[in-house]
Nucleic acid binder design. Structure first.
Length: 975
RNA sequence: GGGCGGUUAACUCAGCGGUAGAGUGCCACCUUCACACGGUGGAAGCCACUGGUUCGAUCCCAGUACCGCCCA
């Protein structure tokens, strides 16, 4: 089959993916006899929409690892699935309903959930379709969803267990409350950011038994409206200014209440007036203070953040911001407002809604993080231990700090959410305030009965934090059972713990730490051995990609390409704030005036992997993507070349011929130093690649492959092979002693043996490269391999029923490294480069062939001659013991001197030589200085000193020859 | 306030105790029979700054500046 002239990815991708999938190549390996098992859990994407660049990046890494281990013959599982993403998904669906003027309450819980399930089907399918476009190879037959029946059952089971152990509890606590969503959220779902605000100084008059004006205390606050819920004023115990007032009362303005002045070291004497109001129901720190001082909190806000019945009648029903204005105005009217100053403060906002989070006193469920369990260790303690002991390893390891720091300061985890979409909490309430945590309603009733309660039970309407079920992912997706380990299955036995978790640092707390905690606590096993933490994909300016900024890229658009109008439309529809549209459109049109060209999946994947340097975020650079698309094209065309030269030819693959065997001798296969060199280099690359996979250094791995293919195989070996396949034309004299003229029969057969060896090397190296690169760029390699492999003797069947996916991954055979051949080629390259740079400096057109005279070992020069002639565009190569006396430019390569026989500008050549002499003299001065330094000679390692001496000798000999050459020019011109 | 990372060519990034690298871009030449998504040659860097350790520092250590992130 003739290959297209250039690589056209679209059709190839469309064709291969269904073949791989339908043939079951992605299926989990369940061979219990194998000792190497490799498993990756897909961080389940949220069913809130579509995949973004971060997913593409994350998945390119995981798929490369999976394909690599699968080819290595390991039992392999890449476990896919999606996350119900409680809040996020509920918001998406609510917004859709909103557009039709319907609220979720209009529908009712049951009907609303039906709508969400519909959305889940749609979104889930979109995501898995996109993953397929990325060429990912998870075991789709094992796809899970966090709200599947099986996973839900495990959620209930763990909840009941933890509750029984006293590690899940219900309590009235101050929690982060989102007044828009009307639900509690966890600490992690609150984003604290500094914003501009004000600091109000308010005077609280001292209460005096006689009713006279006894002065006042001035408190500073950023939230004046919360004063309605004040229960005290506090000062620092060592603050002399206020010491005499501690224990007295002040009158709370606007409210008809007296509150005490207390002393607590929490107060910062230097901040504001050194005098702080205490509002335990609306501030986390004040809650602690109130608790220490036995002050009952007064909650003044309703759940939607309006003043409630505990506030003065005037303010009741006002929104918190409206109330703030009213309170400030009234204080001012009363002459109690001392000052208002601009002030920067940290404002907590809900990460989903952006509204200001209100600390709110509510009944919620919590997981106890630091309370010792029945085995004496807390959940957080276990998570710390797993990492401290080295059972779990972070890559790069500095993330351990982040992990430890968080776990060492962890608060109990609020897991209840006042939402509808999610796992409903398995707790049932009696009419009289008792509750029963059970696997199901029947069990709850049984418990109630034993408890002496015979009335009705009502299930807790709340659902669990979406991360609760995510925390169970490492074992819930493997169909863990409550009876485990008595009842298990092969996947669970083989793949818990999994090998590596590949994730961004943004979810170390949300997800990674919680998986460790829950998996370790419930199963006693760690969830995974390695945590490979990669950076975030940012846009070209280093900005985080977000819909509202309008800088998101869809990985599919980089694969297929997109017209500018479509891109603008995509970026500007469905905005939270439609006002951004104009700005986004302008920016997009400026950045992509012609839209985005399609690069294909392989190029995109290769780009992601190349950019995956550890410990840093990625500014996504489309030009890099273009460069790697070009690389794919290069590989494609190199394959075309090999096929053109090898298809239908004898590629030296007679069945009984193995490298090193007797049959592999000069009469059948005559490998040149160039052949042996490329094979030698190949071993080194294979070796490097193995190391880079083990170290998760995908950037170096991609580069090793890139450089081998382009710089070694294409730029050099293919060019050298052309010489071997097309014997030198008679115009280039053969080395001395071999003569020109008719080839003798023996020479003819030797030539054939050489060409056979060349073809064999061409095709075998290429075939190996395709296997080597397949985990990174699966489509192009598969397509090419189908044609290349039969020629390389790697595939018996040529009907297309075999796949590169199932081939063995190349393994380095370092005994095939060949230093002699490497040195031979290195010197040849030097000579060719020397000729090329001479040509360049002499401004010789690439089209012009020029003659060369070489002086030095004539046998070696003779062997190099045909290669030199072809690669340096020489019309003829002659050898001589002494270079002719001429003005022609000369390059010195080791012991060899190469002269291009051309007419030149003598002045220019003299200048060139002088420049070169100056450069080398500079090096000589540096080397001499070094070697003249007693400290260096005495203390530096002998090898380093010897190396320096050798350099110096080389420079000295070079400069001498250069001077001779320059001298000859001067003599020549003077004569 | 605590912690982490970054600063290397115009851009995006590797690297590393002993000769500073790649891709893209730029300049010149070349449509040579795999590839113009190409070839050959070339220009381009006080490796942020200041000290220290060392025979030797872009690299290790300390500090400074700037940029970014996380936590409180």
């Amino acid at each position: 089959m003739e290959l297209a002239k250039s690589f056209e990815p679209a059709e190839i991708e469309r064709r291969w993916y269904p073949i791989w999938e339908s043939r079951g190549y992605f299926a989990a390996g369940l061979d219990t006899a194998k000792k190497d098992n490799f498993c990756i859990l897909l961080p389940p994407p949220n069913v809130t929409g579509t995949l973004h660049m971060g997913h593409g990046f994350n998945q390119a890494i995981m798929d490369s690892l999976t394909r690599y281990h699968r080819m290595r013959g390991d039992n392999t599982l890449w476990q896919p699935g999606t996350d119900h993403a409680g809040i996020a998904t509920q918001i998406v669906v609510e917004r859709q309903l909103d557009a039709k003027g319907i609220s979720r309450h209009d529908l009712g819980r049951e009907k609303f959930l039906e709508k969400v399930w519909e959305w889940k089907e749609y979104s889930g399918n979109t995501i898995t379709k996109q993953m397929r476009r990325l060429g990912t190879s998870p075991d789709w037959s094992r796809e899970r969803f966090t709200m599947d029946a099986g996973l839900s059952k495990i959620v209930t089971e763990t909840f009941v267990r933890l509750h029984k152990e006293g590690l899940i509890y219900r309590g009235k606590r101050l929690v982060n409350w989102d007044p828009k969503l009307l639900t509690a959220v966890s600490d992690l779902e609150v984003v604290n950011e500094e914003e501009d605000g004000f600091l109000w100084h308010i005077r609280y008059p001292l209460a005096d038994a006689n009713g006279k004006d006894a002065g006042s205390l001035t408190v500073a606050t950023t939230r004046p409206e919360t004063m309605l819920g004040d229960v005290a004023v506090m000062v620092h115990p060592e603050d002399e200014r206020y010491a005499h007032l501690v224990g007295k009362n002040v009158v709370l303005p606007l409210c008809d209440r007296e509150i005490p002045v207390i002393a607590d070291s929490y107060v910062d004497k230097e901040f504001g007036t050194g005098c702080v109001k205490v509002t335990p129901a609306h501030d986390f720190n004040d809650w602690q203070v109130g608790h220490r001082h036995g002050l009952a909190p007064i909650s003044i806000l309703t759940l939607d953040a309006r003043i409630n019945e505990h506030g003065p009648a005037k303010y009741r029903g006002m929104d918190r911001f409206e109330a703030r204005k009213a309170v400030v105005a009234d204080l001012e009217a009363a002459g109690l407002l001392d000052s208002v100053k601009p002030h920067k403060l940290v404002v907590p906002r809900g990460d989903r809604t952006g509204v200001i989070i209100e600390p709110m006193l509510t009944d919620q469920w919590f997981v106890a993080m630091t309370k010792p369990g029945t085995d004496g260790t807390s959940i957080a303690g276990k998570a710390l231990e797993c990492v401290a002991s080295g059972e779990i390893r972070f890559v790069p390891e500095n993330w351990v700090n982040t992990y430890n720091q968080w776990l060492n300061n962890i608060q109990d985890w609020c897991i209840s959410r006042q939402l509808w979409w999610g796992h409903q909490i398995p707790a049932w309430y009696s009419d009289d305030g008792r509750f029963y945590v059970a696997h199901d309603e029947a069990e709850a009733y049984a418990q109630a009965k034993r408890d002496g309660y015979t009335g009705g039970l009502e299930r807790d309407p709340d659902v669990l934090d979406t991360w609760y079920s995510s925390a169970l992912w490492p074992f819930s997706t493997l169909d863990w059972t409550p009876e485990w380990p008595a009842k298990s299955n092969p996947a669970l036995d083989l793949y818990l713990p999994s090998t590596v978790l590949v994730t961004g640092f943004d979810i170390i707390f949300f997800w990674v730490a919680r998986m460790v905690m829950m998996t370790k606590h419930i199963t006693g096993k760690i969830p995974f051995r390695d945590v490979y933490v990669h950076g975030l994909i940012r846009d070209a300016e280093g900005q985080k990609m977000s819909k509202s900024k309008g800088n998101v890229l869809d990985p599919i658009d980089l694969i297929d390409g997109i017209m500018i109008d479509d891109l603008v439309k995509k970026r500007t529809t469905g905005l939270m704030n439609p006002k951004d549209a104009a700005k986004i459109e302008k920016r997009t049109r400026r950045e992509y005036p012609n839209g985005i060209p399609g690069f294909g999946t392989d190029a995109l994947r290769f780009t992601f992997l190349s950019l995956a340097s550890p410990g840093r975020d990625i500014k996504f650079d489309m030009q890099r993507c273009e460069g790697y698309r070009n690389f794919c094209n290069k590989l494609w065309n190199a394959s075309r070349f090999v096929l053109m030269n090898c298809e239908g030819q004898d590629c030296g693959l007679a069945p009984d011929v193995k490298p090193g065997s007797d049959a592999c001798n000069a009469t059948y296969l005559d490998f040149s130093p160039a052949d042996r060199w490329i094979v030698s280099r190949l071993q080194k690359v294979e070796h490097e690649v193995e190391q880079h996979f083990a170290d998760y250094r995908f950037d170096l791995l991609a580069r090793a492959i890139y450089e081998f293919v382009w710089d070694e195989y294409c730029d050099w070996y293919l060019e050298l092979a052309k010489v071997q396949l097309n014997p030198p034309s008679p115009s280039i004299p053969l080395p001395e002693g071999e003569g020109s003229g008719e080839l003798a029969a023996g020479q003819q057969s030797r030539l054939e043996a050489q060409q056979r060896a060349t073809r064999r090397t061409l095709v075998r190296v290429l075939e190996t490269v395709l296997r080597l690169a397949h985990p990174l760029i699966p489509f192009i390699t598969e397509e090419l391999w189908q044609t290349v492999a039969p020629l390389a003797g790697r595939a018996e069947a040529t009907d297309g029923s075999r796949s590169l996916m199932l081939q063995a991954y190349p393994k380095a055979d370092l005994s095939r490294c060949d230093p002699v051949a490497e040195a031979w080629v290195a010197r040849l390259k030097e000579m060719i480069n020397a000729c090329r740079s001479l040509r360049g400096e002499m401004n010789i057109s690439p089209a012009q062939r020029v003659p060369l005279v070489g002086a030095g070992d004539t046998a070696i020069l003779g062997a190099y001659a045909p290669y030199l002639a072809a690669l340096a565009k020489l019309s003829e190569v002659t050898t001589a013991n002494v270079l002719p006396n001429s003005d022609a430019p000369v390059q010195i390569v080791g012991e060899f001197r190469l002269m291009l026989k051309i007419e030149i500008d003598v002045a220019a050549e003299k200048e060139r030589l002088a420049r070169e002499i100056a450069r080398v003299e500079g090096e000589i001065i540096k080397a001499n200085a070094k070697l003249g330094n007693a400290g260096f000679v005495e203390r530096a390692p002998a090898a380093v000193v010897a190396q320096e001496q050798e350099r110096l000798e080389n420079f000295n000999s070079l400069v001498e020859k250069l001077r001779v050459q320059l001298g000859r020019l001067q003599v020549g011109t003077e004569a």
